[in-house]
Design a protein around this nucleic acid. Sequence first.
DNA 1: CGCGCGCGATAACATGGGTTAAACCTTCAC
DNA 2: GTGAAGGTTTAACCCATGTTATCGCGCGCG
Lengths: 251, 251
Amino acid sequence: MTTVSPPSRITTLVEKLSLRDQVAPDEIEALKDVLDPPREIRSGADIVKEHSHPLHSTLLISGFSARYSSLADGARQITELNVPGDFIDLHSLLMKQMDHGVVALTDCVVASAPHAKLIRLTERHPHLTRLLWLDTIIDAAIHRQWLVAMGRRSGLGHLAHLVCELYLRLQAVGQASGKADGMRFNLPLTQATLGDALGLSTVHVSRLVTELRGEGVVSWSGGQVEILNWHRLAEIAEFDATYLRLQNEPV
Amino acid sequence: MTTVSPPSRITTLVEKLSLRDQVAPDEIEALKDVLDPPREIRSGADIVKEHSHPLHSTLLISGFSARYSSLADGARQITELNVPGDFIDLHSLLMKQMDHGVVALTDCVVASAPHAKLIRLTERHPHLTRLLWLDTIIDAAIHRQWLVAMGRRSGLGHLAHLVCELYLRLQAVGQASGKADGMRFNLPLTQATLGDALGLSTVHVSRLVTELRGEGVVSWSGGQVEILNWHRLAEIAEFDATYLRLQNEPV
DNA sequence: CGCGCGCGATAACATGGGTTAAACCTTCAC
DNA sequence: GTGAAGGTTTAACCCATGTTATCGCGCGCG
């Protein structure tokens, strides 16, 4: 995990933002200044509680987490999966009260940024503010794609779409191997968790994973996913990556 | 439509923002300065085209519009309904390319704000910027609630949730009659459109509307909706208004 | 070394919501 | 007043996905 120079706690965030627009040195400094020291969260623990009023926003440094809402009958709907480099509750800066919770799906490392410091950042760094704003806008775009998949795609298309999305988001922060050398990534989530994300039962998720495997589109076992045929997978998903905004276009 | 002093084009927007935090006079001026003169859009026309690269963001002044995505088989999924006072593509300011389209569901009046002016606004008015940012954050919160409804609620619960949401959003901008005096609002949308929003077929929407009516929870005909039993309706929907953020909490 | 448990696969059966079709109603143009 | 067009309702039938249940595998722990 540590080489000559250990990755700073904002490496993945800056890596992601830099894909979209240049991040100036003083902006990187400002981001560092705003964050408290990293801390660890155990798999299964809430990082942010439903209905709470956070006084800081939290950056996911490593691991997977998920936004979720609980229902009266005990069911759960996951509304977004978070990957390293995601600000998991930046919206609480302005929303004040959480409309959902965030749970660690694996052991995670996170760092918090006090709201007071973030507000000061928005007063002094309008361009960096726009980059952070953009990050929350992309959350909304991801939600919309999930809505389309849930409302109008088949279960298989929906699962395929999720796999495409996760691959590109993980690749953007160096957590997936490149196209040349086998499109592989670690996805240590249970099928029950995937079902909560897709709005499907665990039985049906199992059927769908088996089907994708059977078609020779992915190999998937032990939490390791390899995309064997991106073209086919994207076709099944009707995938269009625009919404992830991994293009450099200055804001 | 016009009385002594005709409502300015930003009345509904300012009304909505003011519910959340005080909007200063110079901020209201800044908003006015940023907007081009209003223009009319015919029902059924695109206000913003899918995949376009807008150079301005558009405010909905009157009428209903919808964000939507089209699928290969001709199906459509609506991901949000817009009411007067909504900035319908504010995210394009930073997203650059549209990941979806916006269509007028009724005749609409809109006003556009050039991106160059909006960027200048973010440089000069950090607090107003946060209010606009918050508006896009609430879009994301609405998306999440729709995801929960689509993934884990019954069709009836989902429809009931949509009715609750629309009532509160319309009431916030003075487009629905108050609780004391009959909770009524105009909703001139076809059941096919509602189906595209709910991810259901028009036949099933008809069954569900009939069921809500039969339970005596709403009266609904000719595009007029009246909520006869808010308590029952909110119960069916498991509705919690937190996500609409209609509380005054300074940002 | 073996037991228990979480996870995934499979099977049998149930059902909410889709599809197709037809009847009916309302509005509006002429 | 009549016909056409668009919207809603109802009915019959179908299928994707849910539910319940069982089995098997792999791994951690006693």
